[in-house]
Write a protein that binds this DNA or RNA. Structure first.
Length: 808
RNA sequence: GCGCGGGUAGCUUAGUCGGCUGGAGCACCCGGCUGAUAACCGGGAGGUCGCAGGUUCGAGUCCUGCCUCGCGCACCA
């Protein structure tokens, strides 16, 4: 009973209105239970006799329910009321019948107060004979009804009630389990608790809260380690016990075992069971025969020994252990708190007085796409081989690293692997192929080819590379693998492939050797080699293949890259250039001017010096020339627009007339009048509050402004047309269509074609633009005709174009 | 029951010391570009930042409670 729980003694005064199941009570009978549970339990009409704390009854004796089940065995406390502070009044009666051998609390209590420690159930789960004639030999879980009936018949049962509660089951078979007190060997871990805590504080944990929180909590509550197991397979417990005097000896080596062996006894060569069990030792105390304890050791003990066992220490491993202890880094799932993390520390603490790992990364679990734990029996597992075979191990690994922080649980999304494969790995491979194909064609050798002179584009990508090396190295060191890899991916896809390579294609197409081409090849070579080094720890296969192709040796033998100096200015400048290139496309969409139709001029208004990239920008924007202009007013004018809210209140039904007046008025003149305070439209005085100002492009221009750090830069495009521009635009469109045809026909880049073009209602196509088409499309012959033609056709700006392409 | 960590668009996620209109990718819709690769660019649609309170001039962010998911621990008489 709970010593501090309030109990009540009641007397039954009348029968209940209804009753279900076994049990019962007669009028006049007395019952004792926790006062809080009276309403829950009692169905009879009762009168309260007295209330008292549980401590009042401690020591009082009672008649056992099954008198023959357990021997008193001299116990003073058997069948007396005992106090226990874990007794609750949340369910039941507040009175607990303890079963010493079948629960940890019960066992501890029984040992504390001296209850007989006798089994009533065998290892087979059946009642031992002598428990009760109706129960003996029967599996305990089958006896619930019998027990209830026996107690009912003896008049010892008040009520029966079904209720749900948790119960342990075998995780594999689902069969119910019994708690069962049995002999075990323990390692007294509680004796080294302070050491465990001290050593743990020397370990660098990622994330730190697992070390301090979850694992620290586990250590603060450390229990003695039940190390023996009743299994056949496993590391035999090296303890022998004397049959005569009970002396116990733990053998420390094979030599010691051999030296203690009884004459004539086999000495096990193979230390596994069953051979080792045959070895009989001589007792050092009484010369009696000693037999090995039948247990093997918890297999987690073997895991905990990894720090030295992997080197076969202490058996002449020539310093391998000393050189690798404690190890720099281990990494396991967070569910290994009591497994790997703990047993490694437990063994090294008790055996070596030391930590055995300096850093520990606790990984989040991998869950299925719905966030449930993967389980073979539930069938929600992902077979990694599906992805290895489809997207490759590299993409699978890269996806898993970039999907989130390593310590967070991860919802594995097969789609994400696909995405990583397409985006990162195909892109990287294509960049490599692009470089390698031309390098091979040109006989490029990174070691001997002249360096060439780098362009600002090269300088930019090398600076970005340096920035990525510096940043990701730091992130790797600080456990932020996911951030590092996301940055590498961003660099490869966005900077290298989508900008550097795209902007460099024409440099490598040049068939003649050139300084510029060499600079580009050296740059690409360095970028690829360095990227391979950065990603090698995460995706070891493609990085190694590319590295071997480029450098002839494995990336895994290379040193980690050192960051070159970062030119922040060029990085910022290029960011602006790219922003402006995108802005140009936005302007064209808004102004409804197709991308292929060139503009005569583009102006950059204010902002930093971008002259190094004017050529790139001109191509991206498809403008003939980039110019600088200080005065935005050259392209924009201020326009007065009405403030309908104030004007509506003022003019009411005359508003349309006023709006019309404002629309018809000249903005500059109206502004001047407002300033002078004398603008009157349709009889109403118009003040500054009645209008708003809007900047609009002057006729023939389109502009947009981008914000950078502390200022703004505007881009203005000339929207005017000319015969020359229309001709160039037409040439672009024709070329584009022919190139698509070439691709559809699977022509190789060096193949030549015979070309025929017919143009109807088109602007004039000037000779230089015809020549440009011929050269771009590798036409060995070309005819440009007027009027309707044959073959494929398309329309552009009101013109209709036909063309035929054939291999020549 | 106790402890640790999550919950942000249909999905995966970023979000710094509390501070501008909560960013991005996938998928979707519209448009563009491409000898440019499962690529790229512009635009659109899509948000109760798990719920409820509180602190604050201001909360996705800090505090409290609750719901929910994952893990660990304990209990299951």
């Amino acid at each position: 009973m709970g010593p501090d729980v309030e109990y009540v003694r009641v007397r039954v005064t009348a029968d209940p209105e209804n009753w279900e199941g076994h049990g019962g009570a007669k009028v006049g009978e007395e019952l004792i239970l926790a006062k809080d549970l009276f309403k829950e339990v009692i169905r009879h009409h009762c009168e309260e006799i007295e209330t008292f704390p549980g401590s009042d009854l401690i020591g009082r004796s009672y008649e056992p329910l099954f008198p023959d089940a357990v021997d008193r065995d001299g116990s003073e406390t058997a069948w007396t009321v005992i106090g226990a502070d874990w007794v609750t009044t949340t369910d039941g009666t507040g009175v607990v019948h303890t079963a010493v051998m079948y629960g940890e609390d019960d066992y501890n209590l029984g040992m504390e107060v001296g209850l007989p420690a006798q089994h009533t159930v065998g290892m087979d789960g059946a009642f031992l004979s002598g428990t009760h004639p109706s129960l003996d030999g029967r599996y305990v879980k089958d006896c619930d009804t019998t027990v209830i009936e026996l107690m009912h018949d003896a008049g010892l049962l008040y009520r029966e009630k079904m209720y749900l509660h948790d119960y342990p089951h075998c995780w594999r078979t689902g069969h119910p389990l019994l708690y069962y007190a049995m002999d075990s060997w323990f390692v007294r871990m509680t004796a080294v608790k302070e050491m465990l805590l001290e050593f743990n504080s020397e370990v660098e944990w990622a994330p730190d809260w697992v070390g301090e929180g979850r694992f620290g909590e586990w250590l603060r509550n450390v229990k003695d380690w039940a190390i023996s197991r009743e299994r056949y397979w496993g590391t035999p417990l090296p303890v022998w016990v004397c049959n005569e005097c009970g002396h116990q000896h733990c053998v420390g080596s094979t030599e010691e075992m051999a030296s203690m062996a009884k004459e004539g006894s086999p000495v096990a060569e193979d230390l596994h069971r069953p051979f080792v069990d045959d070895t009989i030792l001589v007792c050092s105390e009484c010369n009696g025969d000693m037999k090995r304890e039948p247990f093997v050791m918890d297999c987690w003990f073997d895991s905990g020994c990894a720090s030295f066992a992997q080197w076969h220490h202490p058996f002449g491993e020539e310093g391998k252990f000393e050189n690798n202890f404690p190890i720099d880094y281990i990494c396991e799932g967070v569910d290994q708190t009591r497994g790997g993390f703990y047993t490694l520390l437990a063994v090294s603490t008790t055996v070596f007085d030391s930590i055995c790992y300096k850093r520990c990364l606790s990984l989040g679990l991998i869950l299925d796409a719905e966030g449930k734990k993967m389980s073979k029996s539930k069938g929600n597992i992902v077979d990694p081989w599906d992805h290895f075979n489809r997207e490759g191990a590299d993409a699978t690994r890269w996806y898993m690293v970039t999907a989130g922080a390593p310590w967070n649980p991860m919802k594995f999304d097969p789609n994400g692997v696909r995405e990583t494969y397409g985006k990162m790995f195909l892109t990287l491979w294509n960049v490599h192929r692009f470089h390698a194909d031309y390098a091979a064609l040109d006989g490029f050798d990174p070691a001997t080819s002249p360096k060439g002179n780098t362009t600002p584009l090269d300088d930019w990508v090398l600076s970005r590379l340096a920035e990525v090396v510096e940043g990701t190295t730091k992130q790797f060191e600080e456990w932020d693998f996911h951030k590092a890899c996301r940055d590498i991916e961003e660099f490869v896809v966005n900077d290298v492939s989508n900008w550097y390579v795209r902007r460099s294609r024409r440099r490598l197409w040049d068939e003649a050797d050139s300084d510029d081409k060499l600079a580009c090849q050296h740059t690409l070579h360095k970028v690829l080699v360095t990227v391979c080094k950065l990603m090698a720890p995460v995706s070891p296969f493609m990085s190694d293949t590319i590295h071997r192709n480029l450098e002839g040796v494995s990336v895994h033998l290379a040193d980690w890259p050192e960051a070159d100096e970062v030119d922040k200015e060029i990085i910022e400048t290029m960011a602006l250039v790219r922003e402006l290139a995108e802005t140009g496309r936005r302007i064209r969409v808004d102004a409804d001017r197709r991308q292929r139709l060139p503009c005569a001029e583009g102006w950059i208004v204010s902002g930093p010096d971008l002259s190094a990239f004017h050529e790139i920008l001109a191509e991206e924007l498809n403008v003939e020339i980039i110019s600088l202009e200080k005065d935005l007013d050259r392209f924009q004018r201020v326009e007065v627009v009405p403030n309908r809210r104030t004007l509506g209140a003022k003019c009411r039904q005359d508003l349309p007339a006023v709006l019309q007046g404002i629309e018809d008025g000249e903005s500059q003149a109206m502004l001047a009048s407002i300033e002078a305070g004398n603008l009157v439209i349709a009889g109403y005085e118009i003040g500054a509050d009645d209008i708003e100002l809007r900047r609009v492009e002057r006729e023939g221009y389109a502009a947009q402004t981008v914000q950078i750090a502390d200022s703004s830069v505007s881009l203005v495009l000339d929207m005017s047309d000319s015969p020359e521009l229309l001709s160039k635009g037409l040439a672009r469109d024709i070329t584009r269509r022919i190139q698509a045809s070439r691709k559809d026909m699977n022509l190789a880049i060096e193949d030549t074609i015979a070309l025929n073009v017919w143009m109807k209602d088109s602007p004039e196509l000037f000779t230089p633009d015809k020549e440009w088409i011929i050269s771009e499309t590798r036409a060995s012959s070309a005819n440009f005709n007027s009027g309707e033609g044959e073959g494929d056709s398309f329309e552009v700006d009101g013109a209709t174009i036909w063309f035929t392409v054939s291999r020549s």
